[in-house]
Amino acid sequence: MHLSRDVVLLLTHSGDFFTIDRVAEALARKGAQPFRLDTDKFPLEVQLTAHLDKSKTYHTIEYKNYSISTQQVQAVWTRRIWEPKLSQELAPKFREACVRESKATLDGFWDSLKEADWVDDLERISYANNKLRQLRIASEVGFVIPQTLVTNKAQAAREFFLQVNGKMVSKLLTTLSYSMEANSSFFLYTSTVREEDLQDAESLRYCPMVFQEQISKQQELRVAYVNGNVFVGALNADMYAAAKVDWRKPGVEVGAWQHHQLPDKVVLRLQAFMGRLGLLFGSLDLILTPSGEYVFLEINPVGEWGMLEKDLDLPISSAIADALLPTNH
């Protein structure tokens, strides 16, 4: 089957659900043709061809009996790009090379979509993923940010612990590892640091960590930002145990997501922040303190928002579809 209508390419993975379906449905309602590409299914199930010569270039994608030319693609949604998944029968000594070559092929292939509208552009996502840059820019646009130390120096960590009066949390800049076989990440959640932990701080020499002052919480906010619009879900901090410093952990009972209206000045800050990063979409985490201050924690340029749409009926997928269709921005 060959698609003839204008296509919006949805870059995701084979385990994705709900959010990908909602965006595809919203695009179809608006007259576009969504094409889901599960990036982890390349090279075993997705077939790519790229023809280049001095007169023209021609690229095709074939997946699940559908075939498109990248010339048909008007927009691309970067939901998630996963690593190529290879079968067990492949000789182990060639696996790494096959994965590396497949990733390089995918990276090269995206160049054929340079004329499309991206939500968001891969280079901008990479730029925005720098968490130290996030904190700097957030501060520059007027957000309060937690006092933060990133270091591999034990003495600096101990001094910072005293500076924040012993109320300190730790986290990493990245997920720990990625398993292609299980398609899972090993994840270290935000953890409270005790004084006795720092007796072992010399081991920071093997790997740095992020340390931040622990911010008092009235509410935790997840903000889905789409092309200037904000969709906010709030969790009441008193609904879960104080020891659980990270609401995302399994087993943490967080209560119900609630609607939350951000003050205009905070929305303006978010718009300025996203403008500096050049992003149309982002999932941001903020803390509302007991004194009513909004503290910026971080942004994930490809973060989650499905729970906000499902539980609060926030029209996020429709907003993403609007952002993908070029007449809307």
Binding site: L172, A182, N183, L188, S191, D200, S203, P250, G251, M307
Partner: peptide
């Protein structure tokens, strides 16, 4: 805390469920 990095102590404090894919339809 085999030589391990500083973050290993926090990873060890997590449950396996926490460490190993948030509708949590």
């Amino acid at each position: 805390t085999e030589i391990v990095p500083f973050f290993a102590r926090f990873l060890a404090a997590q449950t396996t469920e926490e460490t190993e894919p948030w509708f949590k339809l």
